[in-house]
Amino acid sequence: MIVEALILLCLVIGVAFNALGVLGLLRFPDLYTRMHATTKATTFGSIFTSAAVVVYGAWIFLATGDSQFLTLLIHALIAIVALAFTNAVSSHALARAAHKSGILPHPAVVDRLAEVKP
């Protein structure tokens, strides 16, 4: 019962943060601020929806001792690690490439990178 509530909580938090990320992707004015929304919010939301699967796997593995659920748990954990790592690196690569290709942050109070590499 408590575990089911925990799974439901994880799913709700995950879907809510994913929704905020997509909303930010649609609402923010320029590329870099959009990247803030997608990188942070969708990574966090996807970590929580996958954490629901991890909790579910751990729950049934402890209840039945079936090793199939241990596999589910460990693979969902690996998916979380892969997701967090790859999202951070690929957003950094995209931001760097965008700044190199001449897309400047449009509403911006200061841009130290453009001063160093014009």
Binding site: F17, L20, G21, L23, G24, R27, F28, P29, D30, Y32, T33, H36, A37, K40, A41, F44, P105, P107, A108, V109, V110, D111, R112, L113, A114, V116
Partner: peptide
Amino acid sequence: ANLDVAYRVLTMKIRPGIIR
């Protein structure tokens, strides 16, 4: 960070800039 992003998405109070 995520609570902060949620706040910015909903209110659009932003003041962006690139710092070193």
